[in-house]
Structure formats: C-alpha cells, structure tokens
C-alpha cells in the first residue's frame, strides 16, 4: 500500500506560454484531511483536474491511489475508488435528481444506499426535480451526495462548500469528519480558511501555480510565531539577518515580525536591539496564509 494517497513530482501544466501549475510537489498522506488553499486562479482546479486525468500534465509525474496519472488505464481503475466534486458542480440538466443518482450509482459497486437515503433527507433534495432547476446550493449538495455515496477511499473535492449557508457548511464538514473516521483520505480545496482550519490536519498552500508550503496544521501552528517589539523611541529597525523571518514590518515605535521557526535566535537578535517590550504570540492559519501569499 502506498504511503501517500496523492503524490506528485514536479507536476507542471502550461497553456501556451502561461504556466498554470509550476513544478508542484504535492503529498497527501493516507488517511489525512488535506486542505488545499489558494487565491482564485492559483492553480488549484488545474491541479485537481490533472490528478483525475481530466487534464494531461505538460511535464512531471504523479500517482493517485498508487496509479500513475499519465497512465489512462490505471487512472481509470483508480477512479473507481475516488469521489469527486468539481469546481462548478454542473450536472446533467436534463436528468432529475433521482436519475442523476441512479446514473452515478451504476459505476460504483460499493455505493452506500443508507448514506444516500440519509443525505437525501438531510439535504432535502427533491428526487423529481431536474438538476437544471436546482439552486446553486442544492446542486452543491447533490454533487456532494454523488461523491460521498461512492464509498470511495479518496475524496477529491473542489470547493465543496461553495454556495452553502453556514448551517449546511457545518453539516458538510461533519460528513467529511465521518468519512475520514471511516478511513477515507480527503483532499479539498477551499477559499474558507476557517473551515480548512477546523477540519483539516494538513494544509497545502498554492499561489501562482507554485506550492508555498505543505505540512501538518499542528506543526504549522507550533512553528509560526508573531514577535512584537516596542521601543521607547522610533524603532531602530534594520533587517535582521536571521533565518526564519517570514515577514517584518516597522511603524513608529513598533516592529512586528512573523517567524516561521528558529524563534530563539530571532528573539535573541531582536533583544539586541534593546526594545522596551518583546512579546511572542501564536498565530492562526489565516495570518500565515496571508503572509505567505503576500510574500510570493
């Protein structure tokens, strides 16, 4: 068994001269819930499409559930064990909710009937309604049902909570928690840092097609610190030449540093500037994300 449900090496996708994904090394360990963060157009959807064989990589390699994404046949076999929600959640407008379920179910021998019934009730999906007449939120819910009921080992979800109200978002996150407890690996992209923080144990941040960081969320939170220096005079700020300073800003008598590790050396260096106050505070994912993307 592969240690990683998803693993890519130098995965690249160009459209003409534009590079949508640049030399991406992505690793999603088996059994994890990995949040995939990035701005609009950062390359999230292109990456996801390459993982599923919907787009061909320009160069680089990758495996999903052990199958090479360049091997059409192996990739097809792997897709039997993958649940997917696409970015725009469009479904066949000429099919009713019931037909859509019937259609999708036929491809998955491990289809979970009980879950299907439960989700139909929970999401209040009208079986007879044509999917073309569903609201965006309803369509997202149906797309999620179609992904979750496959009994998949790996869920790849492109913005699975888009267009949902906060109650529904919480319901969806709960379903993901349950799927993970059942042993599924989950890789999902999102704009909502808060929901990634809530449910993911790993994050991957992509910007402009490049992977900025990927690691365990706990490690990230334990590694990063904000260091605040106050002076009784104009801050005597010169760039500290110490490894680990992710960002630095000075304003009047205050200096704010974001450190991505090596805290002690940075604190020691900062002390040498003789501040009247030096505080070290923990940071949340949003700060780390914004800082990473801003710096890139």
């Amino acid at each position: 068994m592969n240690q990683f449900a998803i693993q890519t090496h130098a995965l690249t996708k160009s459209y003409g001269r534009a590079e949508a994904v640049r030399s991406l090394n992505l690793e999603v360990p088996d059994g994890s819930i990995c949040g995939f963060l990035g701005k609009n157009g950062a390359g999230k959807s292109t990456t996801i499409k390459m993982l599923l064989g919907i787009c061909w990589p320009t160069s680089g390699a990758g495996t999903v559930l052990g199958a090479s994404i360049r091997d059409a046949r192996a990739s097809l076999e792997a897709r039997r064990r993958i649940g997917f929600v696409s970015e725009d959640k469009r479904l066949y407008h000429y099919m009713s909710v019931g037909q859509m379920i019937c259609f999708t179910r036929s491809f998955y021998p491990r289809w979970r009937d009980a879950l299907e019934q439960q989700l139909l009730r929970q999401f209040q999906l009208p079986l007879e309604r044509k999917t073309g007449q569903l609201s965006k939120g309803m369509r997202t819910k149906l797309a999620l049902l179609l992904a979750l009921c496959r009994g998949a080992d790996l869920l790849i979800l492109d913005e699975p909570t888009e267009g949902l109200d906060p109650v529904a978002v919480e319901e969806v996150l709960q379903l993901l928690a349950r799927a993970a407890a059942d042993g599924a690996t989950i890789f999902f992209s999102s704009h909502q840092i808060a929901e990634v923080e809530q449910i993911a144990d790993r994050v991957a941040i992509i910007d402009d097609g490049r992977m900025l960081l990927q690691e365990s969320l706990d490690d990230l939170k334990e590694r990063y610190r904000r260091i605040q220096l106050l002076f009784d005079r104009e801050a005597p700020w010169k760039p500290l030449d110490v490894r680990g300073i992710a960002a630095a800003r000075a304003e009047g008598p205050a200096v704010s540093l974001l450190a991505s590790g090596n805290i002690d050396e940075i604190v020691a260096a900062a002390r040498s500037l003789d501040p009247v106050s030096l505080e070290v505070a923990q940071v949340n994912l949003k700060e780390i994300f914004l800082e990473c993307v801003r710096r890139n």
Partner: peptide
Amino acid sequence: IRNLAESLVVNPNTVAK
C-alpha cells in the same frame, strides 16, 4: 474518537492525537 469528531466537527485524527 469517531463520536467526538463528529459532534465537535473536527478531524478524527486530531481527536486521536
């Protein structure tokens, strides 16, 4: 673990940890 993860809506791996 499963029960708690579901009711708190957090990652089961996190509860396990």
